[in-house]
Nucleic acid binder design. Structure first.
Length: 262
DNA sequence: CACGAACGTGATTGACTAAT
DNA sequence: ATTAGTCAATCACGTTCGTG
């Protein structure tokens, strides 16, 4: 790790240790010993997102952990431990990020985990319509990996909301094609969830292999892009994965089953 | 190249209300 | 509890420029 990365990793630790408090970028920057201006730049350079976005993401991620861990469910307690001051804000942010409200998340998680486990031999092949624009993606997977690989196109550089489009693949067919995209700028990211004994790994997947295409993908009406992703080990400065991968898979399979276009 | 400062603009926040 | 909406204050992003 170079100096920048170390600074950022330290700051992330600082954020995690002070989650309950109000934190401004100013404080975080001061802790790192830089001005807000320079710190924000450095932080974004390393993580791809602003300190603020990152902090929000950590809060929601911690919330997910709490909701999975705690046997006695209480949104209010979670909210306070995670640094939100109003239940309403937490609830709506959580829903936006995770796709389920805190309560639903808490109650549906086990069911979704069972569903995930049942997907060892699934096939999810999108019909290849020749409609431009298209983005074809090949994923390089380590030989040792055994699990399910999620690939998606996101609006933001952090997977904190459902992808514009996404799919799941396996090592045996490590490629996919996205079609029917509107013009715009997208970020291509992948996460590889190994089969796990701990359901937390499915819902708070911060130790999974991942990959992000370095450049933003600028899609115009007749784009035909071909890109390649290489899965790598997680880095300590990687932004949390807030989206609910099992849920997205579940929803996608349901749509497919209904014969609807994805 | 590493860093700091100023500033306008747009985004985010959390406190509301209110309906479900 | 959740969701949706409003709203004012705050915050931070990006840009531009300055310094050594």
């Amino acid at each position: 790790m170079d100096d920048k990365e170390q600074t950022v990793v330290q700051s992330i630790e600082y954020m995690k240790q002070h989650l309950q408090e109000e934190l401004t970028s100013e404080q975080i920057a001061a802790n790192a010993g830089y001005s807000v201006y320079h710190f924000t730049r450095t932080f974004k350079e390393v993580t791809g997102v602003s300190p603020r976005q990152y902090l929000s993401a950590i809060r929601i991620q911690k919330g997910k952990q709490q909701l999975i861990d705690s046997s006695n469910y209480s949104v209010l307690r979670t909210v306070l431990q995670v640094g939100f001051k109003s239940i309403g804000t937490f609830s709506s942010r959580f829903k936006h990020n995770v796709g389920l409200s805190p309560k639903q998340f808490s109650s549906e998680t086990k069911r979704l985990a069972v569903f995930m486990e049942s997907q060892t031999e699934y096939s999810l092949i999108d019909r290849l319509l020749p409609t431009k624009p298209t983005v074809s993606c090949h994923v390089k997977v380590p030989f040792s990996f055994n699990g399910i690989i999620f690939v998606g196109l996101f609006r933001r550089q952090i997977p904190d909301e459902a992808p514009v489009t996404g799919t799941a693949i396996t090592r045996s067919t490590p490629f996919c094609t996205f079609t029917g995209l509107g013009p715009g700028t997208y970020y291509l990211m992948a996460a590889a969830l190994p089969w796990s004994v701990n359901i937390k790994d499915y819902f708070v997947p911060d130790n999974c292999l991942r990959s992000k295409y370095e450049q933003p993908l600028v899609i115009t009406e007749d784009s035909e892009l071909e890109v390649s992703l290489t899965l790598r080990n997680p880095q300590p400065y990687d932004p949390p994965i807030l989206i609910n991968l099992p849920l997205l898979l579940f929803q996608k399979l349901n749509k497919t089953a209904n014969g609807k276009k994805i």
